[in-house]
């Protein structure tokens, strides 16, 4: 008797909940490289704003492959946090559903998608060259990405897996310096790339990278902006970021709705909320991430605004290079590594 009664109560509660917010029925599935504490925090904030989401987090490259593999049978409703080139490739594969978020107004044109209305950018991150200031002084540190092949930096920096978004971005940043007017890389560029790998510690896992810094072999960190500080804190050293000659590649992260989602309205509502200046400011306050929406930048803490101008950007047209990246990475993997 008790059991039945309990069940009836539970059932009515569920119905009541379902009636108040439709989103409770089934959370939308979000793919993003933002995992662990960041992922949990985003999920909590979203829930507080009335968006039930379930995050599936993995490396950027892995998520990219997964979305492509699931093309016929999409599992995700929204993807965010993949970088320019990856989002551009997914768009070419017709993975996205068009939707212009409420916050697209006021967004600088480079971060909008006025042609297809599919991918909108919300964060930007420089991929920087930093060094362990406890083990190297400013005079001895490289001043440009092109310095890395010098003998004095042999075995002092780590190149991670080319499947990582960060690695891919700075490799592209280096290669485009050697591009001709058609966007093809000169022989000199490929020779440089060979030297860059020969002079480096090459690893395939994040742990192996950390280990190289722990045992003191590596002192120069090629990393995304937030990763530099995180690694320095984990290993226990002071990191100094170099404003390199020739500029630093900037990447921005986008959000899009997956084509074929069965929860289009919930997905649209989530996208509107996520990219809004209010949430972007909250995220900047929590994690120090630099937003791209001018209102969000203006509302961010001062040090975040300062970080935004720490290094000068390298001019890269990601839409132009996106179709070439697979071929370049293949050449690096098969002929250089």
């Amino acid at each position: 008797m008790m059991n039945t009664k309990c069940r009836v109560v539970a059932f009515t509660t569920l119905v009541a909940l379902g009636a108040t917010t439709a989103a409770v029925a089934e959370p939308i599935t979000v793919y993003t490289p933002q995992g662990e504490e960041r992922g949990i925090w985003i999920t909590e904030q979203a829930a507080a704003a009335g968006h039930e989401i379930e995050i599936l987090s993995a490396g950027g490259g892995e998520l990219f492959d997964r979305i492509l593999a699931e093309k016929a049978n999409p599992q995700a409703d929204v993807v965010f946090g993949l970088i320019d080139a990856a989002m551009a490739s997914l768009k070419t594969e017709s993975m996205f559903q068009a939707y212009e978020p409420a916050w697209a107004q006021g967004l600088p044109a480079v971060y909008r998608d006025d042609v297809d209305n599919m991918v909108y950018k919300f964060w930007q991150t420089p991929i920087v060259l930093a060094y362990n200031a406890d083990a190297m002084d400013a005079a001895g540190a490289p001043t440009s990405w092109l310095d890395l092949t010098k003998p004095e930096f042999s075995g002092k920096y780590v190149i991670g897996s080319s499947a990582w978004q960060t690695t891919k971005s700075y490799l592209v940043g280096i290669l485009v310096r050697f591009a001709d007017e058609n966007g093809d890389i000169s022989d000199e560029g490929w020779t440089f790339m060979q030297d860059l790998y020969d002079n480096a510690i090459v690893v395939e896992s994040g742990d192996a990278k950390t280990a190289a810094f722990v045992n003191g072999d590596a002192v120069i960190d090629l990393n995304w902006f937030g990763g530099v500080g995180r690694q320095a804190a984990d290993v226990g050293y002071t990191a100094t970021i170099v404003d390199t000659e020739g500029g630093t590649p900037f990447i921005s992260e986008g959000i899009a709705i997956i084509d074929g989602t069965d929860q289009l309205d919930a997905a649209k509502a989530f996208v509107d909320w996520f990219g809004s200046p209010e949430f972007m400011i909250a995220y900047a306050e929590e994690f120090g991430q630099v937003p791209v929406h001018p209102e969000a930048v203006a509302g961010s803490p001062m040090e975040v605004q300062a970080n935004a101008t720490l290094v000068s950007p390298q001019d890269i047209d990601w839409d132009d290079v996106a179709p070439k990246i697979d071929g370049w990475m293949q050449r690096i993997e098969l002929e250089i590594k």
Partner: peptide
């Protein structure tokens, strides 16, 4: 099985 295949009722197995 990377793309829908008639042999298995037009399903995709890769990633499953």
């Amino acid at each position: 099985f990377a793309t829908p295949n008639l042999l298995i009722g037009n399903q995709t197995l890769l990633g499953s």
